[in-house]
């Protein structure tokens, strides 16, 4: 599901967020203190993301993409403003609550795949169900097999991460991110370590998964080909949201 462009980005945020937003940022700011220097990584950003969207944050290095994804993923609290994810104000969460929230609602796909090397493909996908959500064994097995089949890794379950290719690792990572029925998957530069063809396959896979499971995918990229695959593109520069572009051509600056 994507949102129709109304022509007034700020107004659209305010009206729609109360009804159906998955993520709502309101004058969101993030400032890092490095010694005596304050670095404003995110400066007063407003946006909303609706359920089942396929969203990309793009921008040059240092523009704040990763910081924004980290805040949406409850890994980093905002310095000012408000950020609501699945209706919850993440600034009010402590470490434990944030971890619990992530385990419940958010899946992650990393640039370096970040599979656990001592676990097989099956066990890597199983890990969040086992260690985070405590699913019963039977349901767990069924769910993992479904996900592995969905990402085309059904016959690779017994292999260890060291025995599969980069593209296959990222497929496993996507399956792991989706296995908990997460409402959204955050992917920070998910294709940066993949060749062009594999990168396209991963993006297509993510889109297919979005269609299949209605899960929102939010990823960051600086690859023009990859960013074009997104249905909504937020362009960031120097910590500010410059533009929101929909796949129907609508643009808001």
């Amino acid at each position: 599901m994507t949102i129709a462009y109304s022509g007034d980005f700020e107004k659209e945020i305010l009206t729609k967020e109360k009804v159906m937003s998955l993520v709502t940022a309101d004058h969101l700011e993030k400032t890092y203190q490095i010694g005596e220097i304050s670095v404003n990584a995110i400066r007063g950003v407003n946006f909303t993301i609706e359920p089942a969207s396929f969203v990309s944050f793009v921008g040059p290095s240092g523009s704040g993409k990763s910081t924004l994804l980290n805040m949406i993923g409850c890994l980093d609290p905002p310095t000012a403003g408000s950020l609501k994810v699945v209706g919850q104000d993440i600034a009010r969460m402590d470490r434990k609550q944030a971890a619990h929230f992530r385990g419940e609602h958010i899946g992650f796909v990393f640039q370096d795949f970040n599979l656990i090397p001592v676990l097989t493909v099956f066990e890597n996908v199983e890990y969040p169900l086992l260690m985070v959500q405590n699913w019963p064994a039977k349901e767990r097995k069924k769910r993992v097999n479904n996900l592995l089949d969905a990402v085309g890794m059904g016959d690779q379950g017994d292999k260890y991460p060291s025995q599969i290719s980069g593209g296959q690792k990222q497929r496993v990572a996507v399956a792991r991110a989706l296995v908990t029925n997460a409402k959204m998957v955050l992917a920070d530069e998910p294709t940066a370590n993949l060749d062009g063809e594999t990168a396209n396959r991963i993006i297509n896979l993510m889109k297919k998964m979005r269609d299949e499971f209605d899960t929102t995918f939010i990823f960051s990229t600086h690859d023009p080909k990859v960013m074009q695959s997104a249905e909504i593109i937020f362009t960031l520069e120097d910590g500010k949201l410059l533009q929101r572009q929909n796949d129907n051509g609508g643009t808001n600056a």
Binding site: A99, H100, F101, R102, G103, N114, M131, V132, T180
Partner: peptide, 16 residues
């Protein structure tokens, strides 16, 4: 460290 970051990110509680 990186692995710890991964399992923490996907929601493993600090106690675990």
């Amino acid at each position: 460290i990186n692995e710890i970051g991964t399992i923490a990110a996907i929601g493993t509680l600090p106690g675990k």
